[in-house]
């Protein structure tokens, strides 16, 4: 067992190194003076260290404004996703078996459709509703809970609660909405937090939808602004990497909070409310 642990720790160290090194290079690259000749070996600390790339990247394509837009979209989409997913997942536990089977099957089917396959018709739909070049198409996927898989996750979590708890609620004449709010949601809080944060991360990093729906520079979200930065000055890597750091940093913060909820099962309750 001791030997096993050693090799596992070594493996874990390798995983951390493989993911960590690129991050180090990302930050190192963003601090490099633009226009310098290429180094002979990979450099971990550039010489000289400059911070100007961040300022220039932010000014050039308005990353500040874009970050605000991204935040608005994600801050709307994430809680809405949790609400939709938890309502649907909860109702699925209580409705009749036949309706439940039908909705679960439809959800699995929806999960099997690649997003790129829905691009054109969705665009046509939003265009006919006059919603192109607004945030609506970016927030609307929250109606399918960002991904139907979150509905399924909530359904499984609510199903795992002891059935007598629901019986006890029904005896007390609690309505479905009261049961959801007072009993079911508090008992699956870790799941709700994890899904909310994941939805936030997905919405924040979403590139395809803004690319298709947003034309107005003032509405650009971070990924889109980053892309226009890359088109503006495609060979200025320090600048691009600085932009990438700006787009990634907030997500790192959110992720570090989120991962505690679904990667550390021993912290009481984790993924799926276990």
């Amino acid at each position: 067992m001791v030997r096993g642990t050693f090799w596992r720790s070594l493996g874990a160290a390798a995983v951390i190194a493989v993911v960590g090194l690129p991050i180090v290079f990302l930050i190192a690259g963003s601090l490099r003076q633009p226009g310098l000749p290429p180094p002979v070996t990979p450099e971990l600390i550039p010489d000289p260290v400059v911070f100007g790339n961040y300022e220039r990247a932010a000014d050039l394509v308005g990353l500040g404004r874009a970050a605000l837009n991204s935040f608005i979209v994600a801050a709307l989409a994430a809680p809405l996703s949790v609400l939709v997913a938890s309502w649907a997942g909860f109702a699925l536990v209580l409705i009749r078996a036949r309706a439940r089977t039908a909705i679960l099957a439809a959800s699995l089917l929806a999960l099997m459709i690649p997003l790129t396959a829905l691009l054109v018709p969705r665009f046509a739909l939003y265009r006919s509703l006059g919603l192109v070049n607004t945030f609506v198409p970016l927030v609307a996927p929250a109606l399918v809970a960002t991904s139907p898989i979150y509905v399924l996750v909530f359904y499984v979590a609510f199903r795992r609660l002891p059935p007598e708890l629901y019986d006890a609620c029904r005896l007390e004449a609690a309505s479905p909405f009261q049961i959801w709010r007072r009993v079911a949601m508090p008992l699956v809080r870790p799941v709700a937090v994890a899904i909310g944060l994941l939805a936030f991360v997905l919405s924040w990093g979403n590139f395809l939808d803004p690319l298709v729906y947003l034309h107005d520079r003032d509405l650009f979200t971070l990924p889109l602004a980053l892309r226009s930065l890359a088109q503006l000055d495609p060979t200025n890597y320090p600048l691009l990497l600085a932009g990438a750091v700006i787009a990634t940093a907030p997500i790192v913060a959110v992720f570090l909070v989120a991962q505690r909820y679904f990667l550390h099962e021993h912290r009481g309750a984790g993924w799926l409310g276990r």
């Binding site: 002891p162 007598e164 708890l165 019986d167 006890a168 005896l171 009993v183 508090p186 008992l187």
Partner: peptide
Amino acid sequence: SMVFQSYALFPH
């Protein structure tokens, strides 16, 4: 009103 075998108390 009912007393359940598992008591069905709300843990939170």
